[in-house]
């Protein structure tokens, strides 16, 4: 995978050029093996470093923005002031399922509240930011990270 999301290669890959001068912080947080020696078995870890990378890292923020723009572009239109179609579309993209009524409600009211944090911006920018935040949270959930 390309850790930056954009620029450089901007594509997924299981092979990746590793330069010592440019550490891949996101992969390192998730215990990327040392490249100088063979890695015969990956180690497993769950750490707050990873949580911080998921919460605050540039990589996830950039991916969340791509995700949010896709939702804005592709989701069916919502009735005024409602976000159900967007939430539903985001859940389907992230988890391959529809949100249950509670999740739909929680997420829609999240969007409504979250917009207010960006009150200095235009209305469409506010919605984009709030949607970025929703997508960001979805991508950090256990449901997104782990396979059942």
């Amino acid at each position: 995978m390309s850790p930056r999301g954009e620029g450089e290669t901007g594509r997924r890959s299981i092979y990746q050029i590793v330069r010592r001068s440019a550490p891949q912080n996101f992969l390192n947080a998730f215990d990327a093996p040392v490249m100088e020696i063979n890695c015969v078995r990956r180690v497993r870890s769950t750490s707050a470093t990873q949580a911080l990378a998921l919460l605050n890292g540039d990589f996830v923020s950039a991916q969340a923005e791509h995700f949010a723009k896709r939702v804005l572009e592709k989701a069916p239109p919502d009735a005024d002031g409602a976000y159900t179609a967007k939430v539903r579309y985001a859940f389907r993209l992230a988890f391959g399922r529809n949100p249950d009524p509670d999740e739909l409600d929680t997420s829609a009211s999240f969007l409504d509240r979250q917009r207010k944090h960006y009150s200095g911006s235009s209305s469409s920018e506010q919605l984009l930011r709030a949607l970025c935040d929703l997508c960001h949270s979805l991508m950090s959930t256990n449901e997104f990270i782990y396979l059942d």
Partner: peptide, 29 residues
Amino acid sequence: PVLDLKPGGPAGAAEGRLNLLRELNKRHF
């Protein structure tokens, strides 16, 4: 010392994201 320790954007927004994440993770768990 610790990467990504500080959230970007408005403080309340980061807290909102974390709260939503908590809620979704709780339901899943």
